[in-house]
Design a protein around this nucleic acid. Structure first.
Lengths: 239, 239
DNA sequence: GCAATAGTGTCTTTGAGACAATATTGC
DNA sequence: GCAATATTGTCTCAAAGACACTATTGC
């Protein structure tokens, strides 16, 4: 039924949704992206961003439906804390099969290590730089995702979203440094962190966890993981 | 030749480029968007965002080619100072003709009043709020454009891009207040303006212009209109 | 002259950033 | 105890923001 509407001979081009589901790997101190090993041509067996065809074999009511179908598909199978549309690209030559466009999303998920033969996390920086060679224009897409991530991290707590619900100050400092790829002053981050607690974005707990030497770390709770906090103080508050 | 590849009976859906070309109307103190009166169904004679079909009657090599084709088309016919992709939407019911997706761009152009029967500027806020009823989901698209414009205006000189090459401080202050829809403190804007001059983004001139009562206004030159200046000082400079 | 408005100056507050000093843990 | 490291505090600087004051124009 769907296939007679989407006859590949006559389809002007494919519109796909591709997604960069990212997590924070604490051991490697790196942001990683979930990739999918392609099981068919073109680029069979190469690691690519998971994607689906909008209105391909399955009819989607909206682009968001297609996005959710991708998130629930075996390629991804995640419920990320945060999802954001990054960009749309399209050209005659990005896919050897013909004209195709792709709408790219960026998502943040927990660091649970659910991998299998066809799902694996790779260093996002290596994907963006091309050190890990990816099919189609997926290296460029990863670069776009990384750029969006970095630019938003300057004026929001986006890096903290990688930490989920249970947050410590030192983890927030570390993950922000990892995302921005430079050392973040402890004092500056401390001020921001204090503000988040004072304004109720983070709530206090008595819980403390230990991570090697030194005092235990106080755990704060982010009741709404995925909700972004803006540090922007440009011009006066809207109040 | 192109039409046998894009047989409308078999097209799974239309992918269009829609653009919100905006200007600053100094008299009305408003941001306006160039609309196009549709000359055919659906929504004949209604004012809509100008758009074209990607790979419709004309083959495009890339999405950017389609964007340029739209900019050069009679619907728009502008070379904006600034163009930025905003978002992509798609659904089965946004266009009565069937599944369609649209990639939306935001552009800034001069305030030259080139209008005709089918091209006219309308208040962007009214388009975004729905006070001006628009076909398809164009009210929502305008809302997306306005939101992007406002959020970027908090940490960049985006509103100043409406002024083009010849810039005065008071115009910069005014257009920023108009974009943000609230009074911007003169002192804050003054600091930012001074920095732009000191860092060479704006260059000094001896020229002064008069605008009613009061002293004449000093004119500064923005040698690269369309190039955005970021005020962000989050964390330490990359140097 | 005089109203209107541009440009400048002063002061306060806030947050970034550097860095020292102190406190708390594992071993 | 001691090394490692979390946490707190102090100081400086830059920018936001409030607001007064002065200077320059059109009428």
């Amino acid at each position: 039924m769907p296939s007679d509407k989407q006859d590949k001979q006559f389809a002007p081009y494919l519109h796909t949704i591709d997604i960069a589901v990212c997590r924070y790997n604490r051991e490697k101190e790196a942001i990683e992206v979930l990739l999918h090993r392609r099981d068919k041509a073109p680029f069979k067996d190469q690691w690519a961003l998971p994607g689906i065809v909008v209105n391909g074999d399955t009819q989607d009511k909206t682009i968001e439906d297609a996005l959710n179908r991708l998130l629930n598909s075996p390629k991804v199978n995640k419920s990320p804390w945060y999802v954001e549309q990054v960009c749309t690209v399209g050209s005659a030559d990005r896919d050897p099969r013909g004209w195709s466009s792709s709408t790219v999303y960026f998502a943040i998920t927990s660091d649970e290590n659910e991998v299998d033969e066809h799902r694996q996390y790779h260093d996002l920086k290596e994907c963006a730089s091309g050190k890990l060679n990816m099919p189609f224009d997926h290296n460029t897409l990863c670069k776009n995702v990384l750029e969006r991530m970095v630019s938003k991290s300057l004026y929001s707590n986006l890096p903290m979203l990688f930490l989920g619900e249970r947050v410590t100050f030192m983890d927030a400092l570390k993950v922000t440094s990892v995302v921005l790829d430079r050392e973040v002053p402890k004092g500056s981050m401390g001020g921001r962190f204090t503000r988040m607690v004072e304004e109720g974005y983070l709530t206090e707990t008595d819980e403390k966890i230990s991570r090697g030497a030194g005092p235990k770390l106080s755990v704060r709770i982010n009741p709404n993981p995925g909700e972004m906090y803006l540090f922007d103080k440009s011009f006066k508050k809207t109040t």
